[in-house]
Amino acid sequence: MPTKIEKDAISGQMTTGHEWDGLKELDTPMPRWWLWTFYATVVFALAWVVIYPAIPVSGLTGLSGWTARGALPAEIAAERARIEPMLARLREATPGEIAADPEMRAFALAGGRGAFNNTCAGCHGAGGQGALGFPSLADDDWLFGGKLDEIQHTIRHGVRAGESDDQRGIAMPAFLSTGMLNAAQVNDTAEYVLSLTGRATNAEAAGRGEALFSENCASCHGERGEGNRDMGAPRLNDRIWLFGGDKAAIMRTIAYSRAGVMPSWQGRLDPAVVNMLTLYVHSLGGGE
């Protein structure tokens, strides 16, 4: 509360009567328009609260009915319309044509990254780094081929996705549980597989396994374990192991089989998105 209004001896100005420990406040009036400007901002704020959704309670949207969520579909539609000409080009072009056109390629790589993170990264990991049972897309090993057209084919049709007319439906037999091999034979075959990369622990067993491999495995994996891309049979003579490369993991694979599954994306994704994914996946490890 103001106490004593007086004339300040030095400035000759009146005080407001406010005093704090001997400090007195001079009365320097603000211009009246300043006050009106302040009132105007208050009116603006109140109008804003009435017109726009300012109170965080569900249903209180303000008189205009505008919401950020309500505005989103229009923004998405506008963005779709903006990129549609480019998507149309990407739909028609082959992956090779896209790679050769700098503009389409840049768009496909950027869009492909987003689509990959949405659609593929759940299994293949960010950047296509892969995981046990899910192939890395950043290395130089391709089960079904790493050329642009081969990647596009894999994305379209998936792996063991139930398309019966495709070789990709073939799965590896479970040699132990079906009785095709007994436990000792599984051990010998595993030793032979290890020997393909110079890691056999028992040369004698590996020698016994050679015949078993030739009889049971070579039709898909090749005589020297070089693999077969037509049916996605992995190479066994390299250092990349989709399901683990130690002896226990290899024995488990022979005994109970492995069969990775990837959905077919044809019909579920826009062909333009399939092409963008193709370009992006190809760029991860440099492709083939």
Partner: peptide
């Protein structure tokens, strides 16, 4: 991601 990859010949590659 990935920081590096193992190549089929056993080498290491960075991108």
């Amino acid at each position: 991601a990935p920081l590096f990859v193992r190549l089929s010949n056993g080498g290491i590659r960075n991108a």
